[in-house]
Amino acid sequence: MNPLFKGVIPLRKKLKPGDALFQGIIYVLFGLFTLSCIYPFYYLFINTISSNDLSAAGYIKFYPREIHFDNYSKVLRISGLSHAALVSVYRTVIGTLLTVGASAFLGYLFTKKEMWGRQIWYRSVVVTMYFSAGLIPWYITMHNLHLTNNYLAYILPTIITPFNIILVKTFVEAIPPSLEESASIDGAGYLRVFWSIIVPLTTPILATITIFSAVNQWNSFIDTAFLMTDTKYFTLQFLLWRYLNESSSLAALIRNSPDMAASVQNMQTPTSVRMTVTMIVVLPILIVYPFFQRFFVKGIMIGAVKG
């Protein structure tokens, strides 16, 4: 049961005619909107696994026909694509680990009243949520730091995410202080307390942060557009954007790739490549989403209380 609806008690037992009509209307409205949210994904999926001829002729609307998986096996052979997938996976894994670790540790440190200048440091981290120097000054700074065409540009700037730090700090403050005190009386230092007490007790919020950061990393593309000109730093999102905007170069790519045009029936077209790449980029999120939905919801709730 979704936690949001706990405590919502159905009030009326018997439906009056007006109520029935009202219920009918909102059921249909929500049904239509829900359909509009998932049909695009479904449409793309059935088109990528159907015969490319039928797909190109616009016959695939509601169910797949002449199912095959050539699109996927061939698109993965496009030069640069599997490398871009690796870049995306790396930045997601490493970036997420670092930001979760940093948020947990810094969030914990900020709960320590005895830290020198705690209020000032905490506020100066939090206030960065509300202002930015602007796109171009940021770009120039990154350029001066030699973070253009550099993998570190994907990871370093996201290490400190103020929102995550607020979440952890709020969570740690709710842990009974007696737990920590007994440990420090036993001689445990801050690092030891953090590792053996704080980390295990904050697992739920760390899971929430993990999933938020991972989705953000996977979805980023503006940083690639700004900072990277060398193709070896391109991510899946950025390649997809290029494929969407440069159909002529995509067509050339298909012509020049070996065995792209191998079978006549399932010949790769710019459209089939675009759709397949879109599916490949979107699938990880669709697969992960159902398992982690409750963490997403928890994150926004805690954030709303504090933020």
Binding site: T34, C37, F41, W218, N219, Q237, L244, V282, F296
Partner: peptide, 20 residues
């Protein structure tokens, strides 16, 4: 559950869906 899914895909992906 289903109406929150689009929130988690990037705008590039939204555009790719719109494109198709």
């Amino acid at each position: 559950t289903l109406t929150t899914i689009p929130n988690f895909i990037s705008w590039i992906l939204v555009y790719a869906l719109a494109f198709s």
